[in-house]
């Protein structure tokens, strides 16, 4: 299926083509898992290389890791608050790192060199399944955060400051994962398409600005996703000042 009705010979872009694997009667997108394993492998390699000998005087990769850690801690602390951020730092941080490395991996790694029988490798976040999975995890996370911290008092949040807010807050529970997943998916897919179309039309030099813009967008999208996830969790654990 090629959903872009252009007159150019667009079939080479292979939008919406997937490498199907069959696992226990279910179908999964093989190319997404292949690239996500590469992303996870890169992350784990970086982390293992940096934490092999942690010392009080940071050396080598430890500096980078501590910078990342401090950046993520500040992000989580700012959005979730001093009391609860420690519990959620790994989740927020993992979301950020996974999305960031996925996006940049999709933009920087020359996936075209690897030929698949069907579909093509790219950023795992350019697949709607991945982004919806991440967004639903965020939904589960903030429900769990609110319920575990406040018990059933969590649902007071739906009628604060007035009960008129109840329908809007309920709708919000659906729009939050929807907007999270589609924002990330749309941005990353659009970026890959723009670069691919430009590279297809003019193979030299011209796609470079779009590629740089794509790197910028990729980083911003990772930051937005992590920040919003942290903000939702922070909203759920926030204690009203009476």
């Amino acid at each position: 299926m090629v959903p872009l009705p252009l007159f150019l010979p667009f079939a080479e872009l292979e939008v919406g083509q997937h490498l199907y694997w069959h696992v226990g009667g279910f179908q999964i997108h093989g190319q997404v898992f292949l690239s996500s394993w590469l992303v996870i492998g890169a992350l784990l390699a970086l982390v293992v290389a940096g934490t092999r000998n942690l010392g009080r005087d940071p050396r080598g990769v430890q500096n980078l890791l501590e910078f990342i850690w401090a950046y993520l801690r500040d992000l989580a602390r700012e959005q979730i608050g001093e009391k609860a951020y420690r519990d959620w730092l790994p989740f927020i941080g993992t979301l950020f790192l996974f999305i960031f490395v996925s996006n940049w991996g999709g933009a920087l790694v020359p996936w075209k060199l690897i030929h698949l029988p069907s579909g093509e490798l790219g950023a795992p976040t350019a697949d709607i399944n991945t982004t919806i999975a991440l967004a639903l995890l965020v939904s589960l996370a903030y429900f769990y955060a609110g319920l575990s911290r406040k018990g059933f008092r969590y649902f007071e949040y739906y009628v604060e400051p007035t009960p008129i807010m109840l329908p809007f807050k309920i709708v919000e529970d659906f729009t939050k994962p929807l907007s999270l997943s589609f924002r990330l998916f749309g941005n990353i897919l659009a970026d890959e398409l723009v670069v691919a179309v430009l590279a297809f039309l003019v193979p030299l030099v011209v796609p470079l600005p779009a590629m740089f813009l794509g790197l910028f967008t990729s980083a911003i999208q990772a930051l937005i996703f992590a920040t919003l996830a942290a903000y939702y969790i922070g909203e759920a654990v926030h204690e009203e000042q009476h």
Partner: peptide, 28 residues
Amino acid sequence: GGLFDLDATLPLMAVQVVLLTFILNALF
């Protein structure tokens, strides 16, 4: 195929990310 082709990739990816969260928590 298709852009909005939802299938078992979704839950498996979610499980994968949760596992990654625990691994990164322990290692990083």
